[in-house]
Simulated assay, not measured.
Amino acid sequence: MTEHSSGYRTPARLFHWIVALAVLLMIPAGLTMTREGLDRGLQDVLFIFHKNTGTLLIPVILARIVYRRLHPPPPLPASVPGWQQRLAAASHLALYALLVIMPLSGFVRVRAGGFPIELLDAMGAGPWLPKSEALAGAAQGLHFLAAMLLIALLALHVSAALHHALLRRDGVWQRMWPPTGG
């Protein structure tokens, strides 16, 4: 695999696109599974997908954060104004925070609500939390708020990426584009 000197390393790109794909699948699943009047069979499939994918994402996100701490991102091109660089840094920090809050609040909501997480249950992991409607309700509220913030921040993130790719054409988009052989 080739890497550009101004681009992210291959592991960072892989972490980015694995998490991006999972999150982009989980958002519509999460929004759909909670709709009133949804077919119960479809609702069950979406809940199982959403809970188990969130559970699988926790170690991936934590590994991604550790990797980023050990391998800081390359600097943005000098052509990117300072205010945009500061906004990019703040938005990335917020994205990482939300990527931790989302699966953890979802886990607490499910387990404190007394519901299964099939993947963990199959491994004999146990609930780890006592059943508590108050805790489950608080976690559910946090999960919903974080989801709305994440959707808004992702819209900003994707818009900025497209702005750099289609309008500015300054190489920022290519820095994180999926790695290819070459």
Rank of each mutant, 00 (worst) to 15 (best):
E3P: 00
S5D: 10
G7M: 02
Y8R: 06
T10V: 14
R13P: 06
F15D: 04
A20N: 02
P28D: 10
G30A: 05
L31V: 02
T34S: 14
R35L: 14
E36I: 15
G37S: 13
L46V: 10
L46Y: 08
I48A: 12
T55Q: 06
I61L: 09
R68K: 10
L70F: 09
P74I: 06
L76E: 15
A78Q: 14
S79C: 14
S79P: 13
V80G: 11
V80T: 11
Q85G: 06
A88Q: 04
A89F: 10
S91Q: 12
H92V: 00
A94K: 01
L99T: 02
P103Q: 10
P103H: 07
G106I: 09
G106E: 08
R109A: 15
I117D: 12
E118W: 11
L120D: 01
L120K: 05
M123W: 12
M123A: 15
G124E: 12
A139K: 05
A139G: 07
H143W: 07
F144W: 10
L150I: 00
L150S: 00
I151Q: 00
A152V: 05
L154S: 00
H157I: 07
A160M: 14
A165I: 05
A165F: 04
L167M: 09
R168P: 02
R168C: 06
R169N: 08
D170W: 05
M176T: 02
W177V: 02
P179H: 07
T180K: 10
